[in-house]
Lab assay of single mutants.
Amino acid sequence: QVLVIRIKIPNSGAVDWTVHSGPQLLFRDVLDVIGQVLPEATTTAFEYEDEDGDRITVRSDEEMKAMLSYYYSTVMEQQVNGQLIEPLQIFPRAC
């Protein structure tokens, strides 16, 4: 299952990153890619938005798994409803 992660860049749009092994993705892998997209920032975590629009911070593989399972459940709903699949949007955080 292909996963598209949209890395939101403060004040300048976003970069889409296509991942072919989504469920095996590790927290460190995401930080590495964010580091390539935002080389001047030191990113130690990132956030995503849940169904209520609240930002949830991801700082570990466990939290990463929770984010992915949340995302895959929303994708299934979108597929069932015949909607366009939205990329998983993440917001890098420099701490």
Rank of each mutant, 00 (worst) to 15 (best):
Q1T: 10
Q1E: 15
V2N: 14
V2T: 13
V2K: 12
V2S: 09
V2M: 11
L3C: 06
L3V: 08
V4S: 15
V4W: 07
I5K: 00
I5A: 01
I5V: 09
R6G: 03
R6Q: 05
R6K: 05
I7M: 04
K8E: 13
I9Y: 06
I9C: 14
I9T: 14
P10C: 03
N11M: 09
S12V: 10
A14Q: 09
A14C: 14
D16V: 03
D16R: 03
V19E: 01
H20W: 05
H20G: 14
S21T: 10
G22Y: 08
G22Q: 11
P23M: 12
Q24V: 04
L25I: 15
L25E: 03
L25Y: 00
L25F: 02
L26H: 13
L26R: 15
L26E: 12
D29N: 09
V30F: 11
V30S: 04
V30G: 00
L31D: 03
D32E: 11
D32S: 07
Q36N: 09
Q36C: 06
V37A: 07
P39A: 04
P39W: 01
P39F: 06
E40L: 06
E40K: 06
E40P: 04
E40R: 06
E40V: 04
A41Y: 06
A41S: 13
A41E: 10
A41I: 15
T42F: 13
T42V: 12
T43G: 06
T44K: 06
E49N: 08
D50E: 04
E51C: 13
E51K: 14
E51H: 12
E51P: 11
D52M: 13
D52T: 09
R55Y: 06
R55Q: 02
I56A: 04
T57A: 14
T57N: 06
V58P: 00
V58T: 03
R59I: 02
S60K: 05
S60Y: 01
D61V: 00
D61E: 05
E62P: 09
E62W: 08
E62M: 08
E63Q: 07
M64P: 01
M64A: 05
K65Q: 13
A66I: 14
M67Y: 01
M67V: 01
M67A: 02
L68H: 02
S69F: 06
S69E: 12
Y70G: 07
Y70D: 08
Y71E: 02
Y72K: 12
T74M: 11
V75C: 11
V75F: 08
V75K: 13
V75H: 11
M76P: 10
M76C: 14
E77R: 13
E77K: 14
E77G: 12
Q79G: 09
V80E: 14
N81M: 13
N81Q: 09
L84C: 15
I85D: 07
P87V: 04
P87E: 01
L88H: 00
L88E: 04
Q89K: 09
I90G: 01
F91Y: 14
F91G: 02
P92A: 02
P92N: 00
R93W: 09
A94S: 10
C95K: 07
